[in-house]
Computed example of a mutant assay.
Amino acid sequence: MTSQQRGSREHLSVRDICEELGVARSTFYDWRAARKAPPCIKLPNGDLRVRRADFERWLKALEQPA
């Protein structure tokens, strides 16, 4: 899947987010434990998903002025 296809998906998996940010899966879960990760949806099977809009808002909130 190309980054453009991933960018058009409404919900992202933990794998998608880690690939996009270039971080380890364990880092994402560390952020989640510290309540610093984007808002997640927990599916009945235990998998997590993040709405693309929430992910983009979370990234924007992390921006720091130059």
Rank of each mutant, 00 (worst) to 15 (best):
M1S: 05
M1H: 04
S3A: 07
S3I: 07
Q4A: 09
R6C: 05
R6L: 15
R6Q: 11
G7D: 13
G7S: 13
G7R: 08
S8V: 03
R9T: 08
R9A: 04
R9V: 08
R9P: 00
E10N: 03
E10G: 04
H11W: 13
L12C: 03
L12V: 06
L12A: 04
V14K: 12
V14E: 04
R15L: 08
R15P: 01
R15E: 13
D16Y: 00
I17M: 14
I17Q: 09
I17G: 09
C18F: 02
E19N: 14
E19P: 03
E20G: 03
L21W: 13
G22S: 05
G22D: 06
A24N: 14
R25Q: 11
S26E: 14
T27M: 11
Y29M: 13
Y29E: 13
D30I: 10
D30F: 04
D30P: 00
W31Q: 09
R32F: 01
A34H: 12
A34T: 07
A34Y: 07
A34D: 15
K36N: 11
K36F: 00
K36L: 15
A37P: 12
P39A: 10
I41S: 13
P44N: 06
N45K: 10
G46P: 06
G46M: 08
D47A: 12
D47V: 02
D47Q: 13
L48Y: 11
R49G: 00
R49H: 01
V50R: 08
V50S: 08
V50W: 05
R51D: 02
R51F: 04
R51N: 10
R52F: 06
R52V: 04
A53L: 11
A53F: 08
A53E: 12
D54H: 08
E56V: 15
L59F: 03
K60N: 00
K60E: 15
K60A: 14
L62K: 15
E63L: 00
E63V: 01
E63Y: 01
Q64S: 09
P65D: 12
P65H: 06
A66D: 09
